[in-house]
Design a protein around this nucleic acid. Structure first.
Length: 323
DNA sequence: CATTCGTCCTGATAGC
DNA sequence: TGCTATCAGGACGAAT
């Protein structure tokens, strides 16, 4: 399940293998993967043809590729004002592949790219494929607007980042240099909900999904139903730092598969097996308790219609728990 | 306004 | 064998 580290691996791969290349043709094989493109799949295909991938940007779990039109005259063209948005959802993958290779079973969108070579002169594969089994993800075109954090886009603001309107409500993620712990903590304390709901709310802090939420809570020794308005500053800071730490380590692990010539969401499979302390470990020993000579088993609770894993001893159910 | 819930999707797996 | 039920869960619009 792609969360921040997995999406960042994809972003880096895309930047390396597709940056600067022109989309020569687009093929929407399943219109459901383009349902957020309101003008329809035909319009998406038409408007992608001839566009050049100027950059690859990520905020939280959203990716976008600012596009410059090939026909633009350089003296009139400012920064790109349009971007191809991509979200991987639950099962999305972006793969750079040779056109001769057989279609994946769940291939939804195919982009034919202009020829390009790597630094050693080897020709790069010329297809960017969006593969998505469960179709929670998708691609669409969006206008880029100058946008201050937490505010809708305005006109002509200098120095504000260019963000698609569809991502303007997404908060900064913990790996973003502009992430503000003070702003996060203040908004967290004002909430009337449980801490895990808050961690999964992408408008409060972004990039965290079910897996890294459970991992950060375990590391910070906090129960998922802890009311946000009772969190001490030290607890909130510990949680934020643990979230950042676990996602940075996951990114390093996922980054090891980078030498191969493709962008892979599953690059973190090794990480999952080795390093998860809570997620998916129901009935298995809590490693922190085991290190202290105690045998405590990770429990699984159903919360928000999904599984939550925690240690009963390290993460006791709080008073006034907010399920 | 803030918060919570239902829906979209496919495939693997368990149970009968 | 073959059927049905359950689970996986990110994001968004609807409901409360």
């Amino acid at each position: 399940m792609p969360e921040l580290p997995e999406v960042e691996v994809v972003r880096r791969g895309l930047a390396r293998w597709t940056g600067g290349r022109t989309i020569e043709a687009a093929e929407i094989l399943d219109p459901r993967s383009a349902r957020r493109h309101v003008e329809g799949p035909d319009d998406l295909q038409r408007r992608l043809a001839g566009a050049t991938i100027a950059d690859v940007v990520r905020r939280g779990k959203f990716l976008w590729l600012p596009l410059s039109a090939e026909s633009d005259n350089s003296h009139t063209a400012g920064p790109p004002r349009t971007a191809l948005m991509a979200h991987l959802g639950m099962s999305g993958q972006l793969l750079v592949k040779d056109p001769g290779l057989p279609d994946e079973k769940h291939l939804r969108i195919r982009l034919a790219l202009s020829p390009a070579r790597d630094e050693t002169g080897v020709e790069l594969p010329s297809e960017l494929r969006f593969v998505d089994q469960r179709i929670f993800g998708g691609m669409f075109l969006a206008d880029l607007e100058p946008t201050a954090d937490g505010l809708p886009g305005g006109q002509g603001e200098v120095g504000l980042p260019l963000i698609p309107r569809q991502a303007a409500h997404i908060a900064r993620d913990p790996l973003d240099p502009a992430f503000s712990f003070e702003a996060f903590h203040t908004r967290l304390r004002a909430r009337r909900t449980g801490i895990k709901r808050a961690l999964l709310d992408q408008s409060l802090i972004s990039g965290i999904g079910n897996i890294y939420a459970d991992e950060a809570l375990w590391a910070a020794r906090l129960h998922f139903a802890r009311p946000t308005d009772t969190l001490r500053r030290s607890e909130s800071l510990r949680l934020t730092e643990e979230a950042r730490s676990v996602m940075e380590r996951a990114l390093e692990a996922g980054g090891t598969s980078f030498d191969s010539l493709y962008v892979n969401v599953n690059g973190t499979s090794g990480y999952f097996e080795r390093s998860l302390n809570a997620y998916g470990r129901a009935g298995e020993p809590c490693r922190r308790c085991a290190a202290e000579g105690r045998d405590t088993r990770i429990r699984r609770d159903v919360f928000m219609n999904r599984s939550s894993y925690s240690c009963p001893r390290c993460q006791p159910v709080p008073r006034n728990a907010r399920w």
